[in-house]
Design a protein around this nucleic acid. Structure first.
Lengths: 202, 202, 202, 202
DNA sequence: AGTTAAGCGAGACGGTACGTCTCGTCTTTTA
DNA sequence: TAAAAGACGAGACGTACCGTCTCGCTTAACT
């Protein structure tokens, strides 16, 4: 066994190849959905061989999650300096906008693969969603602390209520997923129970 | 085109076979997920030939949706006589309970197939969800009319907020999907925006 | 059991159907070869149902043989009154002519099915060829008796030598299967071993 | 297009697999006839996957022809050094012997498939028979040149008369296909017209 | 500078499921 | 009561993708 800090022998891995694969995977998911993003199509599109892909990733699922993450973190920043409620609203709006485009098709493909493979989307949560959710929840909690978010319910519940509803409408293709709906949703959820000022300390 | 009421010629279709197929599909989804519910496995399990399956259903997706529907409508009645808020709460609770069991695994498989095949779950909505949602929405609307549901927001939004949140937690395997959470969720959503003067003790 | 002479009850069997089936089978073999002459294609072409076909014939092979016989006996009479050598020559010529057309394609299909099914063409021999061969052999034998056929070899051998060679050239698509070749073949075979002192003028 | 002499890239083809397939096909034809030699049975028998078979051969027909050739060239050498008439006689005898065994069953299957697929046996001729026939014809021609074969008829006609007759008797299961018949046949055909020394210049 | 170990492309391979096809049987209604 | 209509179980077809496995070439770090 080589020393963990020792420089690896032999030819180093090609970051170029990895990037090409992720981009190819994203592109194919966006255009042809999960059915178009077969491993061999990704090989052809990226010019990277199957062996190389299987050396870097366990399987298609892991690869697709990485391909999704690469874009999502870039496209959907969640401000930690803005006023909490405003930050959440802005993020929810830009998430919805992104869902209507490539990102939506890719996320659909990623989750489909995940559910097909594992029976749930836990792996996606582990590698991506939990991080984003923790961030969102902390923003909400900060809003509750400074009084700008009135709902006394657990921050996780509020987060899930906003993003769960959005995802539900997107996944099931329910038409009315527009700016107005998102604004109303965020306001209603964050302000919910506002008038019950003195009740429920938990 | 034959007269719609004319008796069809030839040997009639075997309802027995159809039932066997749907049951086998449901069983296989429940035990092995989507990966286990291949057409050939369903053939073997049901004793029905592939040709027969392809004559009755367009493909695996349609078959799985039917298999899911057959159980869901049976297991999850939505009362139209009870007080609206109570009916919704009871239904949400029994839906969550069912999700923890076979029905959850099957729904996951069905939706995964749907998303993989079509890029969204629209077909599932068409053949199943829209009917259930319409029912739920009408119950909520009735509650708003008789004053037992205080939130003034559109009934569709409230419905999606409840079932979207539940599905979100289930799909992503977020642990806290229990009776208390569901009760809190339903209460918060249906009462949201209300003055709630006398503060419910539950 | 009904009395054998009693008028049969119910709908009588349709000889028309049988004829339609045989003609359809022949036509399909002639145009699409064995691959085109599936049982269901014959049903569609003839307007007769599958059950009826299976009631009259054991399987596709028997049906095809009958379809072939129906035409062959009609098209290829072997004269028993003409001088033997001349009759054989005429028959061989018209056989070769027929082979170039539909009859050839049908015979090819029939024999292919026979060989595929049974590992040899024995059934075809039983139901058709043996009768024709017996006839041809008797004509040759008559020629040997009256001195017009000079070869002293067994008549069966001579028959097989003529028709075997023709069939061989046809089956294997060897080009030179023309009138001159057939004449030369018949003459050579029938006269073989003879002293042929005065050299035939024909 | 790669340079014809360039070393092929990637994993080289497994000759072992090809051999296993050909042997399995031959074995299955010999034991179960054409009906037993399905592609899937050959896969199972040889341990080679279907995809591999379809990469090497266009279809069952090509595969069966190759399987036949592999044995036939091995089992049935045609001497080019022996006296021509003797070589032909010996070859015809060993061909007949082989026909009674596995080779006969395999050839029947091969030709059945060929006739069923193409409407004639031309492909078999192209890939196998033409080579053998050319060889045989040249031997006969050599015999005519050195005077040991007396018949003045075209060598092709003589070849077809011998092998056509043999094949005819075999294909149609005519019993008397024995050593004596073959000897008589070869002698009669090769010597035919011998006494007509000065006649027929063509 | 030469050796050596890993990365990498190409592509063959066994396996599994797909969706289609035909066969021969079975079960109805129609004539 | 025979025939038509057509559903059905069985099983082969040829295709597609998966994940593994050679190959031979390339690339850099280590002698």
């Amino acid at each position: 066994m080589p020393h963990p800090l020792a420089k690896p022998r032999g030819r180093p891995r090609s970051e170029l190849a990895a990037t090409a694969v992720l981009e190819a995977a994203y592109r194919l998911c966006a255009s042809g959905g999960l059915r178009g993003a077969t491993i061999q199509a990704i090989c052809a599109e990226s010019g990277v061989s199957k062996m190389t892909i299987y050396k870097w990733w366990d399987g298609r699922l892991q690869l697709l999650i990485d391909a999704y993450m690469r874009q999502a973190t870039l496209l959907l920043p969640l401000s930690e300096t803005e006023p909490p409620a405003k930050a959440i609203r802005a993020h929810a709006q830009s998430y919805v906008t992104a869902l209507q485009g490539d990102l939506g098709r890719v996320q659909m493909a990623v989750l489909a693969e995940c559910m097909a493979e594992n029976g749930n989307s836990a792996v996606f949560v582990e590698r991506y969603l939990s991080i984003r959710r923790k961030l969102g929840v902390s923003v909400i909690r900060r809003g509750q602390a400074d009084g700008s978010i009135l709902s006394p319910r657990p921050a996780e519940a509020l987060y899930d209520q906003i993003y769960g509803t959005i995802w539900y409408r997107f996944q099931f293709g329910l038409r009315a997923l527009n700016k107005a709906f998102v604004d109303g949703l965020v306001e209603a959820v964050l302000a919910d129970g506002a008038e019950k000022k003195q009740s429920k300390p938990a």
